[in-house]
Design a protein around this nucleic acid. Structure first.
Lengths: 191, 191
DNA sequence: CCCATCATGTAAGGCGTTACATGATTAC
DNA sequence: GTAATCATGTAACGCCTTACATGATGGG
């Protein structure tokens, strides 16, 4: 559930600053938090207090000083513990389905318009996901920023496999949703 | 997004008390809020203040008095407006995928065990959903409590169709997730 | 000159959950 | 007598978001 473990996971690949982590959250659909400062910086302070991470301040010329966090041995243990803890079922919040439940008050044209807009939204999400996916497979690996995002940065063949399956899970979800709405649209014309 | 519109939708079918609404939230996966008192009673007060609903206190013998809310003309307008407003893409919060991203630290057996537990969770969700589905199609319609939940309470053929498509959306999601994890489990054994 | 990027943080507020509080009736 | 159901509400807290605040550098 918690953002702590997501951050510990990122830090298990390489040391990162709060700013780095923020960028990663923003760029990844799987890390579903919005990449807001408040939670990230507070969580880092909390993790540091619990000795799950270590902190080092790096002074740079020509850009502001940054605090670089690394995962500690204790942090790695906590991450391992969490990874094998009981999985939860996904929480899906699909407000569109609630909209649709009361959509019988719309005319045929209005309903089709609503379905079309949902279809377009889904297509946009899918193409964004494909774009991210390509970037990950092409871009030269290495920098801290790419850590989570780049499949080629995986440390073992099994990790590559797992990361690809995660990406597949996302795109197949959007694809299934798209198929569903297309079918719905086609059949709704009969009424 | 908001719980206000979900409640307005329920009230568009029939007048309901806060308690009725609470039960409906608890029994429905589509209404993804947890059916907690705090939000429901506060939202009803808010809706009443905005004249989107009317309130009537019914004194009953052999059970406590209840406040029955009905949707107003203004409420119906607001519901119609919201129903045709821009749809949002679903928000999926799948913490299991984040767990899996760092699961390469587990042994083959531990990983398989984790996947198995996720598979079992999904199977349980699916059978709960099927159970609800059967109840809806069999149970005699009519009472306020069944309003949202009972497909047979739909007012038009098109509404029946929409409600069935909503149910199909949910079960096909869990089914796809189950297929995915089975495939993952089979292929993970190669490592 | 203005805007984007790098970099860290705070403030305010809404959303959502669990737990608490009360009190009557009905079923086992 | 103990638990569940009906029925309404409050308190405390955590999660999460938007917006605000600061300040340097580099590009168009």
């Amino acid at each position: 559930m918690s953002i702590e473990h997501a951050i510990l996971g990122l830090l298990s690949l390489s040391p990162l600053s709060g700013y780095d982590i923020k960028k990663m959250f923003e760029g990844s659909a799987a890390l579903y938090w919005s990449g807001n400062n408040n939670q990230i910086y507070k969580t880092l302070v909390k993790l540091h207090e619990q000795d799950l991470v270590t902190r080092e301040t790096q002074i740079q010329d020509s850009s502001p000083a940054k605090k670089v966090y690394s995962i500690s041995e204790k942090g790695l243990e906590e991450l391992r513990r969490w990874v094998s803890s009981a999985p939860e079922v996904p929480q899906v919040r699909n407000s569109f389905l609630i909209q649709l439940a009361w959509a019988d008050s719309l005319s045929a044209d209005e309903l089709d318009n609503l379905l079309e807009r949902y279809e377009n939204e889904l297509r946009m999400q899918l193409s964004m996901l494909d774009f991210q996916r390509q970037q990950r497979n092409i871009s030269p690996s290495g920098t801290a920023r790419d850590a989570y995002i780049n499949v080629q940065a995986a440390r073992t063949p099994r990790e590559t496999f797992l990361w690809n399956m995660i990406l597949e899970n996302w795109s197949s979800y959007y694809q299934a949703e798209l198929d569903w709405v297309c079918k719905l649209r086609a059949e709704a014309r009969q009424f």
